[in-house]
Structure formats: C-alpha cells, structure tokens
C-alpha cells in the first residue's frame, strides 16, 4: 500500500510541493557548496583539477580508431565540443531499442559495440571514465534536464522508491542522510544532498576518477547493504531519479570531491 502511494506520488512528482524532509528546489546545493575553499580552488583551476587528466586521455580516445569497423568517435560525432554539448545533462536517457533508460557509460558502450564493432569497455575502467569525463565536460554550466522524457516516468518512480527504501544492516535509506540530514556531518565529513552535478568525479578519497555508480555503491556498502551490480536496472533507475531530483542544477563535471 505504501509502495503504491509512493508510486502515485512520484508520478505526480513535479506538480506537488515537496513532502516533509525533502529538499525544496530553492534549497538544493551541489556537493561543491559543501567543500573547503582549497578543494573548490582545485576544481576551478583546470591545471590543478586531476579530473582534467582523464579528460585529456578521453580526448585521445575520442580520436583513436577502434574495433572491426576501424572508426573513432570523431569519425561519426566530429568535434566533441560541438556534438556532445549538453549531452550529459540529459543522461540517463531513454533508449528506444531496449525500452529502458541507459546512462552515459552504457551509451558509450553501445556506440562501441554497434558502430565501432569493438568490445565494450569495463565499468569503471580508465578508458570509459576518460570518455565520459570528456563528454561530461562539454555540459559544464548547463542545467540538468535528465528525466524530461515522459517514457522515463516509471523508471524515475522506481528510483525514487529505492531512494526512500531502508536497506542494509544499518537499515537506513538514501533519504535518511541526503534529505533528512544533508546539512549535518558524519564522522567529520559533510553529508551533502547527493546532487549528482559533476560525475564522473575525481574523488580525493579514491585517489582517482569514478562514476555515479561507484559513488552509489560506496554508499550502499557503507550502510552494509548488498550493492547493486554495475549497470543493473535498479542502479540506472536510482541514477535517473538522482538526476531528475537535481533538475535545473548546473553541471560542473569533471568535479573534484573530497
């Protein structure tokens, strides 16, 4: 009954005022806002932001021919700064062939398998992160519009259900931290609202790049739940819900996060 009520609420989503505990649109803050001035300075300077190293690698890959078709990304898409402008702000997006939402990494891999006739890149591989970082950078400063497609409504509703679903040995939901206690601290670190504005990110704790999926898996392991597999349908639904929750917020990829 409760699930059904949430589902209906989610479908009505945008039309309703935020329920208790949820963050009002005007109160939303990117993870950037929670960072120290030193970490902000690192992100803002393209020669200090280590995510830019990944973007550089991505630029090389973009122009490298691959697969049996011997085609590079640029052979079809041309200049990345033109063709990929704003692309990341739309993802996860609806894929008509599979009739499911797919995230940016999956989109890159579809291109690899279908058009380049190459093996898909492994989740969290440096190549996939480099290409997605390069593509995500082209949406810097643009508002997130993922989830606008009406065909995504059921997936967003599923993602929302997962966001409020208590889980793991600690029996807490995403919302318990990122809605209810977003302005507080956990073991000295800011909890933040969980707004996915800058993925893939360079996370100082990881000493490397990672996708939103890796970040979500880290949270799930943290509450001692069984983390979703990479690219699982529920993982994509949760990514999609988070992006739709951040609707209109400005992208700042590749972001640096503590």
């Amino acid at each position: 009954m409760m699930r059904r009520a949430l589902f209906v609420l989610a479908l009505l989503g945008a039309a309703l005022p935020a329920a208790a505990g949820e963050i009002a649109p005007s109160e939303r803050r990117s993870g950037y806002d929670f960072m120290s001035s030193d970490t902000k300075a690192m992100q803002d300077d393209d020669t200090a932001n280590p995510g830019m190293l990944s973007v550089l690698d991505g630029d090389t890959l973009w122009n490298t021919k691959a697969g049996a078709a011997n085609k590079s990304c640029s052979d079809c898409h041309g200049d990345v700064s033109v063709s990929m402008k704003g692309a990341t702000a739309r993802y996860p997006a609806f894929n008509a062939t599979s009739a499911t939402p797919i995230d940016l990494g999956q989109r890159v891999n579809l291109c690899r398998t279908q058009h380049q006739e190459a093996a898909p890149l492994a989740p969290e591989s440096s190549e996939l992160l480099a290409l997605t970082a390069l593509i995500a950078k082209q949406s810097r400063g643009m508002p997130i519009i993922a989830g606008d497609d009406a065909r995504l409504a059921t997936s967003i509703a599923r993602g929302r259900e997962l966001f409020f679903q208590r889980e793991g040995q600690l029996n807490i939901a995403c919302s318990n931290c990122h809605d209810d206690n977003a302005d507080r601290h956990l073991a000295g670190s800011a909890i933040t609202q969980g707004q996915p504005t800058g993925y893939p990110i360079y996370r100082l704790e990881w000493q490397g790049m990672g996708s939103l999926q890796r970040r979500i898996r880290g949270c799930m392991t943290g509450v001692r739940a069984q983390a979703f597999d990479f690219d699982a349908a529920d993982m994509i639904a949760l990514e999609l819900y988070l992006m739709s929750r951040a609707h209109g917020m400005k992208m700042d990829a590749p972001a640096v996060r503590p």
């Binding site: 300077d45 020669t47 200090a48 280590p50 830019m52 190293l53 550089l56 690698d57 000493q207 490397g208």
Partner: peptide
C-alpha cells in the same frame, strides 16, 4: 608555474 602529472603513486 603549475604542473599536474598523471601517476598512481
């Protein structure tokens, strides 16, 4: 002068 080098360290 600012330098950033890609390395796992």
């Amino acid at each position: 002068i600012k330098t950033l080098m890609s390395h796992v360290m």
